[in-house]
Design a protein around this nucleic acid. Structure first.
Lengths: 237, 237
DNA sequence: ACCTGAACACCGTTCAAGT
DNA sequence: ACCTGAACACCGTTCAAGT
């Protein structure tokens, strides 16, 4: 790929090989780092999905051997945790807060959703492990701050924060899953099944959405239901 | 294990072997069925978790060979889909509806949560695939019916149903995950991290719940936030 | 300190062969 | 119709050995 010959010192004067090698080593550092591994993992997950993230595939992308990764991470699960936190790092939040707590929460939810959908593997992962990486925590900080200024404290505060995060990760996961599984095909199969079994599904047969082409509007509706509920339960100041 | 000898017909009179064998075959049918496989999968998942569900382990539980399972299911993913729908089958809902739509929805959410927590592997699975098995659909029918009597239609109806289901699967998944990962230990590590980095996490440091020993109360709070929001958005009759 | 190579104990799935 | 056996192309991880 690069123009680097296999034996770079083949025609060098005797003696200076050592000097050059030493400088190169010192300047370039290790060729594998945790950061490079995580970046490669995110790329691989984006391109091929979670089933193709194997230590061997990941190593190949980094022109290294699978076993070398274990110097930098303890397990494959570590890689997944780090990759997920890297997605949280992409969430772009304003440095200062709005006057309106609700606007802040909307910003958080919208940005979290956007980041998760950029990486369709991420939402399902977010639902299946504690979100306690540094970037996940710093985004949590933002929501907690907004909710505290809204007046929430104690168990109400954490229930509100959990409901907000869960709503976003859950809907993003659904959306990603449907989109990865031939949404139109599955919907039409389900639709026909429901029509054929109207006795079992009297309501669903009439109301199951045959196409959900506007996932964003769907997300926003549910978000507003939740936010209206939070607003109604906001303690008086 | 059983007292059955290896050669059951060894001392039988000549001729009657055939008769007995034929009757046995006809009476007992195939020793592997989809139902048996699914039941064994649920048992295995309950006992050992999702990482130990392999086709070989599953077959062993059924005293069969891994490759035999493929006569009854196409892939391991099929097994997971079937096992998850079996969990939905456990959800016990009243045959008729309450006068109050809200009470119906609470019943649904509570029962869904209970079923998911009985099988700690189930909630994460529910978040990562379309819930279109027959039992999942019949439980959906119940919520849709309650929401339709509440007055919801069209996009609001499906957004409300999705928010309800997502809230339950998401919170159940969190709960199961925390409980599987040494909750107290992780919480205390996170707590110390937050204390040490108060500058980065000014709000979280003061409000991160150090113990969440009442998950049910936590669930109920969030549920009421959502239901209050739905009530507020219910169209006038 | 960091990387490699060989090895262990597994995987899901296919397919020809048996009954 | 249903089950077995052998086989393929993989896995995550450990650990002694190299540099």
């Amino acid at each position: 790929m690069s123009a680097k010959p296999k034996h770079p010192a083949a025609h060098a004067a005797p003696g200076d090989v050592w000097f050059r090698e030493a400088k190169k080593r010192a300047r370039s550092g290790p060729q594998l780092t945790r950061e490079k591994i995580v970046a490669a993992a995110v790329d691989l997950l984006d391109a091929q999905g979670v089933q193709h993230l194997t230590m061997r595939n990941l190593a190949e992308r980094l022109q290294a051997h699978a076993t070398s990764l274990y110097w930098h991470v303890a397990t494959k699960d570590d890689v997944l945790d780090l990759a997920l936190d890297a997605v949280f790092a992409e969430i772009d939040l304003p440095a200062s807060h709005h006057a309106s707590w609700r606007e802040d929460v909307v910003t958080f939810m919208t940005e979290l959703r956007r980041a998760l959908l950029r990486h369709p593997w991420a939402a399902a992962l977010a639902n299946s492990r504690p979100l306690v990486g540094p970037h996940a925590l710093s985004r949590s900080e933002f929501v907690y701050a907004a909710l505290v200024t809204a007046g929430f404290t104690g168990p109400d505060l954490s229930a509100a924060a959990a409901a907000i995060t869960t709503y976003v990760t859950g809907t993003a996961s659904s959306e990603a899953v449907w989109q990865q599984h031939d949404e139109a095909g599955v919907r039409s199969v389900v639709h026909h099944h429901l029509q054929a079994q109207q006795a079992r599904y009297p309501t669903l047969a009439g109301h199951f959405p045959l196409s959900s082409d506007d996932w964003t509007a769907h997300f926003t509706r549910g978000m507003n239901f939740l936010l209206d509920g939070l607003a109604a339960n906001r303690p008086a100041p």
